[in-house]
């Protein structure tokens, strides 16, 4: 590793320690790391968006003479809508920024409506309506739990009817299933964060200090 590589490792180690120092208390090193992070990530995403979106989706399209004239003109509409977005900076013409916003809201609402309806609602319902009493006992029990758990979970989220009687019982079973999910998600989150922490410690004691071989 050359000088700049070593310098990078030392810098990364300093920043890692700076962030970890927050565990003691909020301090100037943590605040500096935080400020560096905000600035650099804003600049990073701006540049990535510029090259990935404005350059590839607009510039390369409008300057590509292999495309038809329509295909070269249409990206200009997106560009003009984008420029209209900047009108928000000027009070008198700020209302113009609603046009690109309306376009994005409308297009993404329609897009997500179909995507979520197909993948979240329809596909999940279809996967739940399955033959229960099929295969060995373990499969039967698993299938039963999946069907009953999904149904009871949905009952719990149905707030238009009071949760009493049989409906209330199903709702209670539903929340038991939900608690298992929350517990499992919590366990997974803890383990993933632990894994990240181990990664950082491995970097500090291995890559930086060379204590782990």
């Amino acid at each position: 590793m050359g000088f700049w590589g070593q310098f990078g490792v030392w810098l990364a180690a300093l920043l890692t320690i700076g962030i970890i120092s927050f565990l003691y208390k909020d301090n100037f090193l943590y605040k500096a790391c935080e400020a560096i992070f905000v600035g650099i990530s804003a600049g990073y995403w701006f540049i990535v968006y510029y090259w990935d979106n404005l350059y590839k989706k607009f510039y390369l399209q409008v300057t590509n003479h292999d495309l038809t004239s329509w295909e070269r003109i249409i990206p200009w509409v997106g560009f003009i809508l984008g420029v209209m977005m900047l009108s928000r900076l000027f009070e008198k013409i700020g209302w113009l920024s609603r046009w690109p916003l309306a376009f994005i809201v409308g297009a993404t609402a329609g897009l997500y409506m179909m995507i979520y309806f197909v993948s979240n609602a329809m596909a999940q319902v279809a996967s739940t309506i399955i033959p229960v009493f099929i295969g060995d006992w373990a499969t039967i029990i698993a299938n039963f739990f999946i069907v009953a758990g999904t149904f009871c979970g949905l009952v719990y989220f149905f707030f238009s009817k009071e949760h009493k009687g049989a409906f209330g019982l199903a709702s209670r079973v539903g929340i038991w299933f939900l608690m298992i999910t929350f517990g499992a998600s919590f366990g997974y989150t803890v383990m993933s964060r632990m894994s990240l922490m181990i990664g950082r410690l491995d970097f500090l004691f291995g890559t930086w200090l060379g204590m782990i071989k």
């Binding site: 609402a109 979520y116 739940t128 979970g153 989220f157 999910t181």
Partner: peptide, 29 residues
């Protein structure tokens, strides 16, 4: 746990989210 009860409850959540997104998108459009 992950493949059976977790899957069941997650499905209930995901179906709920799906229907919620459809309703909100329709209200917006």
């Amino acid at each position: 746990l992950m493949n059976v009860p977790n899957l069941a409850a997650n499905r209930a959540i995901v179906i709920g989210i799906g229907l919620g997104v459809v309703a909100t998108a329709l209200k917006v459009i």
